[in-house]
Design a binder for these strands. Structure first.
Length: 460
DNA sequence: CCTCCACAGGAAGCGCAGGAGT
DNA sequence: ACTCCTGCGCTTCCTGTGGAGG
């Protein structure tokens, strides 16, 4: 048997016209049903184009409601304008500490700086310095602010704003804050999934305080989160500074979802490939899961792959249904297999106990058991899970982590929606957490055990 | 009411990694 | 090559919490 060549693979018939359109990272020219939100963001950021500091903004909305897409869309438009405004997108899932965020900002905006290896204070200083003195081009000119801060406004500014009205307005606001306006950059930092940052209060404090210290230029924060309760975790100070401006992205309604799906289907697939029934089913499935457009796109894309595999030129409701099953297990698989080892082991321990309990006793061992589950699913006690986790660790020859760290893992798993926990109430001795798994325990067990056997066989 | 239990979660500190400065 | 500095993951220690049981 000889392996196929690339040209063979590429010449295979396909239902796709442009796969990129179906990627969650694709930013379309027009975002349907988000005009109002986009306008609000644009209005909020417009001061940056006039050389003023835009107010911070907190954007909330469930997954797949177009938050990130809309913000990126606006950033694209902002970049088209010649101005001192610069934006920096930070995905806080990857950059999840104050240090990493600041490092990312300096690296992104001032590539000339080799930001590795500097301490936080050093990075902060560099960032401030660059913001104060650079014109919107590079980080070369360094002495502009020194003069400007010294006294008169320098006359050699940007060569735009020609009309008299503009000049008058400019002079007026110059008088207001003569010092702040000269030269410095208007930095807009987008913190996506901002709830993932560990020392979020410190980060927000650092960035907002920077504004007080800057002689020119400014920093504006746009926080994006899908958890509204995130606000309550913030300190008083951070909350009022981040939430100067709030924007809520509502979930897409079923008809809206249907329109989005058919729009993307038209762009992503060849003409007449996707049947109406398929679009309707995709919209219905997604509608159940509270209007997550990202999920709908994944569904479409997968349905296309399935059609290609089968060698057919139509996508019907049958392919969408198949795609649903496949995507569901994909999502769980991805979420679980990208977890750090010990979080996987904790999850495996939970899955093991869940399966045991399902077979043997029902509720948690407590005498009355009235606090735990009104429904028939059993809850696990934190302590017994830790014991099982210790056993599982031994089995895979990984030294177990301390109980303290194990509790952090539980918090992380809960944040990711892989488990749910509640506080023990009456009927339970002491104060503990009751744990339940979010995905089918058997599937989770299979995924993790497979993962570890792959790792082990690779090591051997 | 007091004590015990079974934990939650904050604080401090430790060792390591990786870069800068000498 | 070394010393110093910093962030990070982790452990240890400690205090707090809330129900059970005497």
């Amino acid at each position: 048997m000889s392996s196929p060549s690339f040209s063979e693979i590429l010449s295979k018939p396909t239902v796709f016209a442009d796969r990129n359109v179906l990627s969650p990272h694709y930013i379309p020219e027009t975002l349907p049903f988000r005009d109002k939100e986009i306008e609000k963001i644009m209005v909020g950021l417009s001061p940056a184009l006039k050389g003023e500091r835009p107010r911070n903004m907190f954007i909330y909305g469930k997954t797949g409601t177009g938050k990130t897409c809309s913000v990126k869309h606006v950033m694209g438009k902002l970049a088209e304008h010649k101005s001192n405004a610069v934006s920096c997108y930070v995905n806080c899932r990857m950059y999840n500490s104050r240090y990493r965020v600041i490092q990312k900002i300096t690296k992104e905006l001032f590539p000339s700086l080799d930001s590795m290896g500097f301490g936080l204070a050093m990075l902060y200083e560099k960032m401030m310095h660059e913001l104060e003195c650079s014109e919107a081009g590079g980080s070369a000119g360094a002495e502009v602010t020194e003069q400007a801060a010294g006294g008169k406004a320098s006359p050699k500014e940007e060569p735009r704003a020609k009309t008299k009205a503009d000049e008058a307005r400019k002079a007026e606001s110059d008088a207001e804050d003569a010092r702040k306006k000269t030269g410095g950059r208007r930095l807009i930092v987008i913190l996506d999934e901002v709830d993932m940052v560990k020392e979020i209060d410190d980060l927000l404090y650092t960035l907002t305080r920077a504004n007080d210290e800057l002689k020119a230029g400014s920093i504006t924060i746009i926080g994006i989160s899908n958890r509204l309760t995130f606000k309550d975790q913030l300190g008083q100070r951070s909350r009022s500074s981040l939430c100067e401006n709030e924007l809520i992205f509502p979930s897409y309604t079923p008809p809206q979802m249907q329109a989005i799906i058919s729009q993307r289907a038209k762009m992503g697939f060849k003409p007449h490939v996707v049947e109406d029934a398929a679009v309707n089913l995709a919209a219905a499935i997604t509608g159940q899961d509270v209007g997550d457009a990202r999920y709908a796109l994944k569904l479409l894309s997968k349905a296309g792959e399935i059609a290609d595999e089968k060698g057919i030129s139509k996508i019907t409701d049958r392919e969408v249904e198949e795609a649903r099953r496949s995507v569901e297990s994909d999502v769980a698989f991805e979420a679980i297999s990208t977890l750090p080892d010990h979080q996987q082991l904790v999850l495996l321990a939970i899955a093991n106990l869940m399966l045991d309990k399902g077979k043997n006793t029902r509720l948690t061992s407590g005498s009355g058991g009235s606090a735990a589950g009104e429904d028939d699913e059993p809850y696990l006690i934190s302590g017994e899970v830790y014991e099982e986790y210790s056993k599982v660790s031994r089995r895979f020859r990984k030294p177990r982590r301390s109980a303290r760290w194990y509790r952090e893992y539980l918090n992380d798993l809960e944040m990711l929606g892989l488990i749910t926990t509640i506080e023990s109430g009456a009927g339970m001795r002491g104060r503990t957490r009751l744990i339940r798994i979010g995905y089918p325990a058997a599937d989770v067990k299979k995924i993790i055990e497979k993962n570890f056997s792959i790792i082990e066989s690779a090591v051997d």
